[in-house]
Design a protein around this nucleic acid. Structure first.
Lengths: 239, 239
DNA sequence: AGTTCGATGTGATTTATGTCACCAAAGCAC
DNA sequence: GTGCTTTGGTGACATAAATCACATCGAACT
């Protein structure tokens, strides 16, 4: 299980898409800003003219329905970069970016990025590589949430959480970030109650246990079977 | 409603991402090949070392479950380019590409593309733009299929079909491509029977009618209301 | 210690959707 | 035409998941 690299705040987590040189270049055009939990980096309808790099904290990308339910498309943390990467084209956000832990965010203006990309062909290529990766992440998540019911969706989510926040221990993996059942539900488009019942079943089957709110995966294979896991690379099978 | 550009076979449909110059460059590194209906361009597990450009015919990108059901992620046609765009990285297909109409396909080898991208920074940037678009297409489809039940998913699909294959007529839009109910079902992760019943309801509500197998959208707003359509640009809200 | 509040756990019920079974209609081969 | 095969249509029933309604738990605060 990969550990989180926090020594270099400008290392895009789990991707290795960018060379050290290009990370420095990206860092040079970032404007650092502090944002409080509960505030928003962008709302749907806002112009997509910025990229965001999380130096610390957490952000969720969501879509809300009229009835008050929300679907969490991504949950980003330290080391993640995101934003509508749609250079040289005016477009608008379809999702919301809500801060869920006080954060320090590096903001990259699209116009600065465009200049940088024009000047550095190799950075442009690394960018494409990164964009390809996140698209694959979206596609595999899409597949997981569509194909094997809510049980499959939850097990896929647990595996992604383990890949992203997991600390490997003897015979089990501890998911270091704590999420409420409501959050888990919103990440797979289910209800809190359903998630609660499914987690109970998984506990009864000794596939997981819960300690101090932390989900501990005891039988990864059990989860994998339910969502027909194909053992995708961890840089794709993640949050 | 946009019409299909078939005069220039190397125009990537509905995107306008690529300049004329760069389209020529892409065309120059393509190897043309004829592929028969029923055959596959790639299977899951194959190395992602090529891009495909459809000069004529149709291809579906699918994921099959053990029980024989399949989920159709994309349905591509003349003018569409696709493939795992993951330059400079060895990775493997997660989905299958099945030819569903005898096709002529331009194949671009990744190594040729890499050279071209290195030489042409502006092409690399156009590529990023294109990748951003298709990612957004995936994301909005994901949202549509997750958030408003199968009714919402079907209405979203009908709107995308109308945007992609629609021929605007007085007071209604005729979807020029014919799909079986089974195909429609596989595109939204539902069963044929459910789709059939939902189409019947839409017919009863005078939202659509069916003539010679063609679905004709009579009341677009009715469909939009069901899937909470936000009127996304047509280059994103498409198949 | 009592109060409040968000989070968890669980039964009963409803609704959405899938499954099965069957027939009709349309297209196609002979 | 006759007999296949694919597709469309629909009822009856089964299952998955949401909804509603409470009870409980634990942390945070008086």
């Amino acid at each position: 299980m990969s550990t989180i690299n926090s020594s270099n705040v400008c290392n895009v987590r789990n991707t290795e898409c960018f060379s050290a040189d290009n990370l420095v270049k990206l860092q040079q055009i970032m404007y650092e800003t502090k944002v409080a939990s509960g505030s928003h980096l962008f709302w749907e309808g806002d112009t997509t003219d910025k990229l965001y790099f999380i130096k610390s904290g957490r952000v969720k990308i969501t879509k809300s329905s009229d009835e008050g339910r929300q679907f969490i498309l991504y949950m980003y943390q330290e080391g993640d970069m995101f934003g509508q990467v749609d250079p040289f084209r005016k477009s608008f956000h379809v999702f919301n970016a809500e801060i869920i832990e006080d954060s320090v965010v590096g903001v990259i203006l699209q116009k600065d990025l465009e200049v940088l990309l024009w000047q550095n062909g190799d950075l442009a290529v690394e960018f494409m590589k990164w964009m390809g990766l996140i698209h694959r992440m979206t596609q595999t998540k899409f597949r997981d949430l569509m194909m094997f019911g809510k049980h499959g969706a939850l097990c896929s989510l647990l595996i992604r959480l383990a890949n992203t926040y997991g600390i490997e221990q003897v015979n089990h993996i501890c998911i270091s970030k704590v999420h409420t059942n409501t959050e888990l539900a919103d990440m797979i488009g289910a209800t809190r109650e359903s998630v609660n019942r499914m987690l109970s079943e998984l506990r009864k089957a000794n596939a997981i246990k819960i300690e101090n709110g932390h989900i501990i995966v005891e039988d990864l294979q059990y989860l994998r079977d339910i969502c027909h896991c194909e053992n995708c690379p961890k840089d794709i099978c993640r949050m």
